[in-house]
């Protein structure tokens, strides 16, 4: 079971020089096993911080985060993460990047080669196994990053604006690929984004966060009844109503965030 629970999480960001900033203020949220939840909010609202806390990369100072009932204490293999900047090891080829986590697991050589090959095919990168990340396009890099994370079979996928650096067409393709992969092997997903349409399209539920200090402002159910996919779905009334609703929520926060800065 890989349900996630945030309760009363508070976090203060302390820059090396300068005043501490309250980044998150009492965030509570429950994510069910195999649920796809998007965290949506204006930039600087602390949504990525929340994800890093869940990842165990920064320590929880106040409140509690549990995964499957156990408190988070440091990074763990059951929580795989995909970053916006891909975070591929630039000195490793596509194959070596995907192999890295499998080597850490101590998987036998034959088996991990086989698994790597499967993943390369899953993300449509056959023929690029021996390329370095610097030789790939943005969309290809992100596919490698996803394959690398999927390789160790995490129960939970943490995605930090994974498609934010891609152009619109590539992003749409990546959405379809991600959904296809999720259908094949469902996982619990926490997906950080500031793109409203992306959130509605991908997620079962969208948690809208307020401007700094971040709180959960509203949780919107985005499991759509329509069976339509792709372009068709984007045309449906149901989809657009949800987008409109979320857009208004986010816009208010973005305006507030800007007011606070000026």
């Amino acid at each position: 079971m890989a349900g996630i629970s945030f309760s009363e999480v508070r976090h203060t960001y302390r820059p090396p020089r300068g005043k501490p900033v309250l980044a998150l203020e009492s965030v509570s949220l429950d994510v069910q096993d195999r649920e796809f939840v998007a965290l949506l909010g204006p930039s600087g609202c602390g949504k990525s911080t929340l994800l890093y806390l869940l990842g165990g990369f920064i320590p929880v100072e106040s409140g509690a985060i549990t995964v499957g009932g156990k408190p988070v204490n440091g990074p763990g293999r059951e929580r795989g993460i995909v970053f916006q900047n891909f975070a591929l090891f630039p000195w490793k080829t596509v194959r070596q990047n995907i192999l890295y986590g499998l080597e850490k697991q101590g998987m036998a050589k034959v088996e991990r080669e086989k698994r790597t090959q499967d993943l390369v095919e899953l993300v449509h990168l056959k023929g690029f196994e021996d390329s370095y990340p610097s030789q790939l396009s943005g969309g290809m890099k992100q596919r490698v990053a996803i394959a690398r994370t999927l390789a160790v079979e995490p129960e939970i996928l943490l995605m930090d604006e994974p498609f934010g650096a891609l152009d619109a067409q590539t992003r749409a393709l990546m959405h379809e690929e991600l959904l296809a992969i999720m259908r094949r092997a469902p996982k619990t997903v926490v997906f950080v984004t500031h793109d409203v349409r992306e959130a509605v399209y991908l997620a079962d539920r969208v948690a809208v966060m307020s401007a700094r200090p971040g709180r959960i402002k509203e949780i919107v159910d985005t499991k759509l009844k329509s069976n339509a996919r792709g372009e068709e779905l984007l045309q449906t009334r149901e989809f657009n109503d949800r987008v409109d609703h979320l857009w208004k929520l986010v816009r208010d926060e973005a305006i507030r965030a800007q007011g606070a800065h000026e």
């Binding site: 890093y52 990842g55 990369f57 440091g74 990074p75 763990g76 293999r77 929580r79 795989g80 993460i81 970053f83 900047n85 975070a87 090891f89 890295y100 986590g101 850490k104 697991q105 690398r148 994370t149 160790v152």
Partner: peptide, 14 residues
């Protein structure tokens, strides 16, 4: 060195 590289490796079990 990019923080996300360190975190990725740690997340993969290093």
């Amino acid at each position: 060195v990019d923080q996300s590289l360190v975190w990725s490796a740690m997340g993969l079990g290093a």
